[in-house]
Each structure stands twice: as structure tokens, then as C-alpha cells.
Design a protein around this nucleic acid. Structure first.
Length: 420
RNA sequence: GAGCUCGUAGCUCAGUCGGUUAGAGCGCCAGGUUGUGGCCCUGGAGGCCGUGGGUUCAAUUCCCAUCGGGCUCCCCA
């Protein structure tokens, strides 16, 4: 075999037959559960305006500052979407979905793009599913969102994970907290890691997320945001936690959980798994009460999450969870000679019309090779057609699992297979 | 973007302390069984040893670069 001249770009992968079945099974579960939760699917373009993502996700985030695929054509600035919250909000505003009344419960599945160095559980094109609940600031919305997320993993059978929850505060609480954090960290600023020092002014909360060894002892004793929440936000958070308890969803309160997008307010959560290696986040999300307005829409509270589908599939692999059955076909038509081959070709459609999946040899091979192919294709039955069968109008139906054969007319075969 | 590591057949991997035709298992094709798969036996196809350059009489083997994978950091799904 010649070496492939053209290959996928780095960090972009083909999903091949054998693998695709798992994806379809996963997607089916997501669609089914979304229907049970009364979420409606939304599909938005792969390309968005660069300005939307910069404003929406945040100029200073890693995603925008170094992970974006962007290009210009004419006067338009295009970006391959790195996440879907900002685009969904854009769509909500553009099409005035608030006018549909009530809160909007939306979900999505699709590819995202980030120009990162790939490693296990991290690709440049990857897939997420997620939910956005627009228009409600009720803690019930936060918790339904989390409940949907947990339900997907529960249905698949992934139970080895940790749900971390925090409140990152509203703007008022957050300013008070940032001041307190700077007061606390300031005296030791020179002892912090380089990255943390850089974040001190603009985004001191991200220091809490640091994994640098030298930062750890300071983080351990840092003030906790919860002590700075104003009454309303504290009450919201208490309700979220209480509802989670009511639903028996176990969680860890992590006062130092901070998330990568600028738009989060109040509730923030993250689902991590020890089965994933260093890229251990299965899913993450939170509330973004200011984003709709930021993008030019009416002041609208909202909450959502996004989950990585590749990571979910990696976890399945680690846990030996089989999402899809091996493929099979109901019946394989084995034909001997031109007459029989023509008969097979013209009778395939009749079987298919009766709801039977069927195929035949396309390479004019020997009977043995055809039987071998039927076996490889995991056929339940083979129908063997030769000159004897054509003359008698009775065909050999072989049960490939039991290795038993009987002689039947074509109609009898269809009847038998269709009524299985 | 930084560090480490790996890159031999479709797949999983041996091997060459630089030296004539580069191996195994699985898979693929064919035959053993001219009308019967899965097991077994026999044979066959398939590799410029990731790519480019350098050192050398000679490179798949050593050196450099590059591309791609894995791990870590950063960050996130």
C-alpha cells in the first residue's frame, strides 16, 4: 500500500466504521433524554463572527487569546466555533427566542474547534453536547441543567466521577472578593508562580485554579468567595445545593473552582473523572446571567453546561462499557452463476421492502468466499441460490448461528425473516 | 506555546552493537473441499523501516531537522 499523500490535519480525526456506531448510540441517548427533559435541539453554523466569540467568551481567556481558528474573507471575520454558549446566545438574541415565552430550554450536539496541541482527550476538532436554559434565574434551572448532565452519564453507566460545585458570585460580590484576594495574596506576590503573578491584577480568581506547586500553600488558606457573596447570591447558591441534595445528586463544594470562560456568574460546576488521565474534565458549566445583554440582547439570566463527547467515550473505553452492538445484517444472498446472481440482485429490494437488511457479493467470488464474507459481515442467515434452487423455486436458507438449513420458497423466506 | 518520549506490513509488535533477498502474530487473497462460513493445513500479496537532509565505501540502524502519535506543563470538553 502506498503511503497516504493526504492526511487529516493535526488534532483532527476521522471517525471510522466500527467507531461511528458508538457515536450514534451516544447521540441517541442524548436525544432521548433531552426529549424526556423537554429540551429542544438547536443547530447553529460552524462559523461565527470573530467578534461574537471574542466578546462572548472573553478577550483574555486562553480560548480566545491563543486557541482560535480564524480567517478573513472580504470584510468578514470568520472563526470556527470553540464552544457553543456564545453562538446559542447569539441565535437566541437574533431570532428573539424570548418572544416564544417562558424560558427556553435548548440543547445541542456538534463539533467545536480549538487550536491546541493535541493529547489524549484533547483534539483540535472535538465534539460537545450541552444545554442552555435561557430566561430563568431560578435555582431550579441550575439544578435541572445539572440533573440532565448527570442523567446522561448515569444512563451510560459512568459513575466514577466527581461533581464540583461553587458560586463565582455576581459582579458585586466578585469585586469585593477580588479585593480581599489581592489583599491576601499581595504581600506574597513575589513568591507566587509567574502565571499567577500575571493574573494578580486582571483575574486574581484564576490563581485559585493554579496547579503550580509554589502556589498551593497560599491557595489553601485563601479567603473563600462564599464569605463575600451578597444575600441574594448566597441564597441562590444555598438553594442550588439544597435542590441537589433533594435529588440525591452528590457533589463536592469546591470554593476554589473557577472556570475558563469570562461569562460565568454565580453557579459554576465541573464534572471530572479519574478515568481520563490529565485531561480529566468530562463536563463543565454554570450560570451566565450577563452574557445575553453583553451580546446585545435583553437582560436575560441563563445557565448551561457543555460535555466532551470524546472524553465520555474514553471513559467508556476505560470502564469497558459497550455502547453499541457489533453490526450485523439479516441475510446475505450467496449466488452461484450469472442467472443466480441476477436473481439475487433483483430479489434484494423485495427483502428490504419487507424490512429485512440484506446484501450480496459484489466481487463475483466463489461460494466459499461468499460464505466467508457472510460470516465476516455477521449475517444471521445466508440464502444460497444456484441452478438447482432456481429450477425448483426453493432456496436454501442457512442459519449462520445454528448452522442449520432448510429449503423454502422466496416468499416463505421473507415471511420467516420478517416475522422474527 | 514549552519539555520528555515514540514512529518497522492494514493492525499489534520483534529485529538490525551500520554490512548481501527486513521478520512474527492477527487481518487480507487463494487453494485444500469444482455448492457451504466460523476451526485446521498450505501458499500468496502487502514494507524505498514516517519524511527530508547529513556523516559513511555502505544508513531502516548514528546525527540534525521536520511531520505525526503518546505523556507532562499551560488550559480546557
Amino acid at each position: 500500500m502506498a503511503k497516504a499523500k493526504y492526511t487529516t490535519h493535526i488534532g483532527m480525526v476521522d471517525i471510522l466504521p466500527g467507531e461511528v456506531e458508538k457515536w450514534r448510540a451516544l447521540e441517541a441517548i442524548i436525544h432521548e433524554e433531552a426529549a424526556k427533559f423537554n429540551f429542544e435541539e438547536i443547530r447553529t453554523p460552524i462559523l461565527e463572527q470573530t467578534e461574537l466569540i471574542v466578546r462572548g467568551v472573553g478577550q483574555l481567556t486562553d480560548i480566545v487569546s491563543k486557541e482560535i481558528f480564524a480567517f478573513k474573507k472580504g470584510d468578514s471575520h470568520y472563526v470556527l466555533r470553540p464552544e457553543l454558549t456564545a453562538p446559542v446566545v447569539r441565535s437566541y438574541v437574533q431570532h428573539h427566542l424570548n418572544q416564544r415565552g417562558g424560558s427556553q430550554k435548548l440543547y445541542y450536539i456538534g463539533p467545536m474547534f480549538r487550536a491546541e496541541k493535541p493529547q489524549k482527550g484533547r483534539q483540535r476538532q472535538f465534539h460537545q453536547f450541552g444545554v442552555e436554559i435561557m430566561g430563568s434565574n431560578d435555582p431550579v434551572a441550575d439544578v435541572e441543567c445539572i440533573a440532565f448532565m448527570m442523567r446522561i452519564y448515569q444512563r451510560i453507566g459512568i459513575e466514577n466521577f466527581e461533581l464540583k460545585v461553587n458560586s463565582v458570585g455576581d459582579p458585586e460580590s466578585r469585586e469585593a472578593y477580588k479585593t480581599a484576594l489581592r489583599d491576601y495574596l499581595g504581600p506574597n506576590l513575589d513568591k507566587l508562580s509567574e502565571v499567577s503573578q500575571k493574573r494578580f491584577e486582571k483575574n486574581p480568581m484564576r490563581i485559585l485554579d493554579s496547579k503550580e506547586a509554589e502556589d498551593q500553600e497560599f491557595i489553601k488558606q485563601a479567603p473563600v468567595i462564599r464569605d463575600f457573596l451578597n444575600e441574594e447570591t448566597e441564597e441562590h447558591f444555598e438553594n442550588v445545593l439544597a435542590y441537589l441534595d433533594d435529588l440525591s445528586i452528590s457533589y463536592t463544594e469546591d470554593p476554589y473552582l473557577v472556570r475558563g470562560m469570562d461569562y460565568y456568574t454565580r453557579t459554576a460546576f465541573e464534572l471530572t473523572s479519574p478515568d481520563l488521565g490529565s485531561q480529566d474534565a468530562l463536563a463543565g458549566g454554570g450560570r451566565y446571567d450577563l452574557l445575553v445583554e453583553e451580546i446585545g440582547g435583553p437582560s436575560t439570566p441563563a445557565v448551561g453546561f457543555a460535555a466532551g463527547m470524546e472524553r465520555l467515550l474514553i471513559a467508556c473505553e476505560e470502564l469497558d462499557i459497550k455502547l453499541a452492538e457489533p453490526k450485523s445484517v439479516d441475510v446475505y444472498f450467496v449466488s452461484l452463476g450469472d442467472e443466480a446472481r441476477k436473481w439475487a440482485l433483483t430479489h434484494l429490494p423485495k427483502a428490504r421492502e419487507a424490512g429485512i437488511s440484506t446484501t450480496m457479493d459484489y466481487m463475483g467470488r466463489s461460494m466459499k468466499a461468499q460464505m466467508k464474507d457472510a460470516n465476516r459481515e455477521n449475517a444471521d442467515y445466508a440464502v444460497i441460490v444456484g441452478s438447482n434452487e432456481l429450477a425448483e423455486g426453493k432456496f436454501t436458507l442457512r442459519n449462520m448461528r445454528e448452522s442449520e438449513e432448510m429449503s423454502l420458497s422466496f416468499d416463505q423466506i421473507i415471511e420467516k425473516l420478517a416475522s422474527r
